[in-house]
Amino acid sequence: MDMISIRDIRKVYHIGTEKVVALGRISLSVAQGEICCILGTSGSGKSTLLNVMAGLERPSRGSVIIGGTDVTKYSEKQWALFRQKNIGFIFQSYNLLPTMTAVENVALPLAFRGVAKELRTGKAVKMLRAVRLGDRLLHRPTQMSGGQQQRVGIARAFVARPKLIFADEPTGNLDSKTGQEVMDLMVAMARKYGETLIIVTHDPEIAKYAERIITIHDGCKVSDESNPAAAGKKEEPES
């Protein structure tokens, strides 16, 4: 079953009288539990595509269907509630809240969902242990390295067990070794929990972690191929 599918998505920015076509008619679907990578050069429209899929940007045309529901026309509030329950995010620049500890940051999506404090703290601690940060629970973002911060970010994305996780250049700010560690962790977590993971990157090395690689260029899909090397590593999710 398709976790997410987009149909004929087009996104045009108007700057003054000029039109910038960021996405021109893109259609694709990602199956439940799939780890998929969107690969493209800078300015090719990857982030725009991701933002459209996550409801942060409205497409000029086309529709977005997630888990069988057409969410294209959702209001801002509906999207917020939908993201609360169904979508996790991993950012290039981590985007942790600087005044909060690691636990509080990880527990934040649960807090938005109205989960009681003890329960969400427990889940957050568990998640942090899963990303091997059990000894950094009460550290603030400024007291952690980039790799550690990104691991907190991964814990935050997974903590609410969303249907879909989006990662926009998750290794963009990390050196290649740390980047690899983070990718290993992220992919392992996604497999472990059976999450659908969509990674955006310009780096073919990173793309190798995905089972499926969709390449876009100038806002259009140029190729969509499976990656047997990564798919081979796929284990049965324990869910």
Binding site: E76, L81, R83, Q84, I87, L97, L108, P109, F112
Partner: peptide, 16 residues
Amino acid sequence: TREIGIMKVLGCIVWN
């Protein structure tokens, strides 16, 4: 501003 943006992306409704 950035914090508010992050919270919105993580699903905090505007009323909150």
